[in-house]
């Protein structure tokens, strides 16, 4: 009868968000997307967000007007990189974004690349 009154005292108020990340990922595995995206894979929007889109997708399309790395998208959206790659994979499959892969993994960098970097750093 009065149980509800008794526990008003020790209840903590919730901050944050009632949604959990798996709902945002809609149950898809981040493992598949992982092969396509590195932290420094560059993302560029190729279409405008639409009103019926999942808000996270819309946000990615909106902020990637100029190239952004996956790490930056993750930081702006405040979502873990693995979740961001799931969302990016959706957009990539729908050809809504362009994906610019970093240099091939597990290979020594080309001398020309290193020269370019050294040159660039010198101008800093």
């Amino acid at each position: 009868m009065s149980a509800a009154d008794q526990d008003t005292v020790d209840q903590d108020w919730d901050e944050g968000n009632p949604e959990r990340l798996y709902v945002i990922a809609r149950g898809r595995s981040p493992l598949a997307a992982h092969t396509t995206f590195d932290l420094v894979t560059l993302i560029i929007s190729r279409s405008q967000p639409t009103p019926t889109m999942q808000p996270e997708h819309a946000a990615i399309l909106r902020i990637c007007g100029s190239p952004l790395s996956v790490a930056e998208v993750s930081a702006y959206l405040r979502l873990p990189a693995s979740l961001v790659t799931v969302l990016l994979a959706d957009l990539h499959a729908e050809k809504r974004i362009e994906v610019r892969a970093p240099i091939p993994k597990a290979a020594l960098p080309a001398r020309s690349l290193l020269e370019a970097v050294i040159h660039g750093l010198q101008r800093l």
Binding site: V40, A59, I63, S66, R100, P102
Partner: peptide, 23 residues
């Protein structure tokens, strides 16, 4: 609601020509 996600500021934008990122 998605508008509230702050994107990069104007001066932080990379040129569209950027093709490769290294880390």
């Amino acid at each position: 609601g998605s508008e509230s996600v702050p994107g990069p500021q104007e001066e932080d934008l990379l040129p569209a020509s950027v093709a490769t990122a290294v880390k």
